[in-house]
Design a protein around this nucleic acid. Structure first.
Lengths: 338, 338
DNA sequence: TTTATTTACGTAAACGTTTACACTCAGCTG
DNA sequence: CAGCTGAGTGTAAACGTTTACGTAAATAAA
């Protein structure tokens, strides 16, 4: 079967390729009658333009790349939803790349994307990333970038984040108000700004209420989940005075539940727990988990919106376009007072 | 700044574009010395080949498309993980498209993909899809396709599924053994083969144990979750004799929990619940949910493996390459006997 | 009428690769 | 020494679009 491309259409209609191309783009240079003829045949033959030829010629791919640590984190799944929604509305495609929080993978992915495969990149940085030269190099390649959630502020571009500091402050105060005095903080990673912001909110809230900081109560998570559980177990056993846990990321909140169960610590009677999470089913937990819930869908949509605007207007992205959205503290039984 | 492409490299090295291209592909026609010179400059200038030019010329994009209903379903998130893993290993890229279970969107996406943007497609059919002409048309466009999980057997291609019938039969028997006699079945959709298979496993298990089928106990879910909850509420109120619920999809299991709570029906004392689910945190539910857990990651990896093999060997995919993986029934307290 | 403008279309170059084919020059063979 | 071989490189066409430019005919302005 002969391929159906512009040449084929042109031959069958006795027109030039140029006219057919213009007709399909609804160019004013083509008469209405010709446009009609072309469109009729195009749909009849199920013509679909070759995306690669078009991309090559126009030097734009109508595709954005999304680089995230993992897709099994519900936050990122929701964010992708928002991204895909915004992208589809403008006729853009979405390429997904997973770093698995691994620095080397992130570098390889970014390098690859510099081949012009995408018009822009949305990125949430891997927790294993320390050096950011690979990200900076995107600027030379002229590929616009917008960070979301896990950002690196030393890169001058827009970022879409949540009010991590404030919500951590608020969550910590919530634990304090519930009577907690020895609150452990489970940190996602030292490399990530969201981790640092959340830690700072926790610290400042303690300080504001006259509680001294206790470095032993701060546990930095790793990529290895079993290791996290083990360390948390050690901590809880050595420090029976712990009466509150603030997990700065969903996975660690779940680990906290498991550890409390194993050690026979009752939630919320013995220990109150609050954690960042986007899982809808936390309300079914035993007991329902008090969460800080980020507007994940909106974050994705907003980040995509900023990126696509820049891509289409061919305008550079400045840090001033950054957006901060508010998370919500949802109180459930895991922090209830007797 | 001048673009760094083959032409640029060729000029700086006083070679022809052809030689540079061949050198970078490690062609035997190029002397070792030249290869070395070319490679050195390429890395020095951070040369990255233009993916679109290459795709256009070779007529292959090193990209596969993944078309799924949603990414917020944990099953699909895990499957994407498996797909991305298999794809990356072979140097392929992954485009994600979400149908949101909407037929029209699915048609538009498939039509778009026929433009040659992808070398192959992995697909889980939308529950809203009845007619499959758009899927069949992929064959004419010569784009290989592999189904996973939500398949349409009338399309002659490979499919990766789980033993839905057997695990449903087993889950139903598990409820029967726990003493249930009036088991409701929450169905995902009448359009999907997985729904039908799961329903059939439920029916046959009942029949094998001498229980008559009761159509009133079969509730077909819709895309509207609130509606599902409402209907389930009605059902549970009209039929206080219901002592078991078998949810054929995660979302409906969660809804069942909510409804039982609202109506004050205790799990597992009054009603026992089992559901398909890939959520790891079901063990934290109140009570922990007995699940049929699908090997989602393996499903994705296997489907991608079959597809990529066909793409690389330029070989058609036959239904005989289909794979059936086994799900696992994980017993937890939601089906415990007193 | 001549000249300018507009309308509708065609010609051909370009995007960056890949690759069939041609070519040159050593080093051989007979 | 003519003819051949093969290693290494170059020339140019091709992939399917888009688009700057050219052009012919029709219309409007002079």
């Amino acid at each position: 079967m002969k391929p159906v491309n512009l040449k084929r259409l042109a031959e069958e209609l006795n027109l030039s390729i140029a006219t057919v191309s213009r007709a399909l783009q609804d160019s004013y240079e083509v008469s209405a009658a010709t446009k009609e003829r072309v469109r009729a045949l195009a749909t009849a033959l199920h013509y679909e333009p070759n995306a690669y030829a078009s991309s090559l010629r126009r030097n734009q791919s109508k595709t954005i790349g999304v680089v995230i640590p993992k897709v099994t984190n519900h936050f990122f799944a929701l964010a992708i939803n928002g991204i895909e929604e915004a992208a589809r509305q403008r006729g853009y495609h979405v390429l997904i790349y997973l770093t698995h929080d691994d620095y080397a993978r992130e570098v390889a992915i970014i390098q690859h994307l510099k081949g012009g495969r995408v018009d822009g990149i949305l990125m949430s940085v891997a927790s294993g990333t320390e050096d950011t030269a690979h990200i900076r190099s995107l600027r030379d390649a002229n590929i616009p970038l917008v960070f979301f959630d896990r950002v690196r502020s030393e890169i001058a571009t827009a970022q879409v984040t949540t009010n991590d500091y404030e919500s951590s402050y608020q969550a910590t105060e919530h634990l304090l108000a519930a009577g907690c005095r020895h609150i452990a903080h489970l940190l996602i990673s030292n490399n990530l700004s969201i981790g640092r912001n959340r830690l700072q909110g926790y610290r400042d809230a303690l300080h504001a209420h006259g509680l001294p900081p206790d470095p032993d109560l701060i546990l930095a998570g790793t990529m290895n989940n079993e290791q996290n559980v083990g360390r948390l177990q050690d901590l809880m056993q050595h420090r029976p005075d712990i009466d509150g846990i603030f997990a700065s990321v969903e996975r660690l909140a779940v680990s906290a539940y498991h550890v409390c169960r194993q050690l026979g610590r009752r939630i919320p009677e013995d220990v109150k727990v609050v954690g960042f999470s986007n899982l809808e089913s936390v309300s079914l937990f035993d007991p329902p988990l008090t969460t800080i819930t980020q507007p994940a869908h909106d974050i994705g949509r907003e980040a995509a919106r900023i990126l696509l605007q820049a891509v289409e207007k061919k305008r550079a992205i400045s840090p001033s376009q950054s957006v901060v959205l508010n998370s919500e503290l949802v109180q459930r039984r895991s922090t209830a007072t007797a």
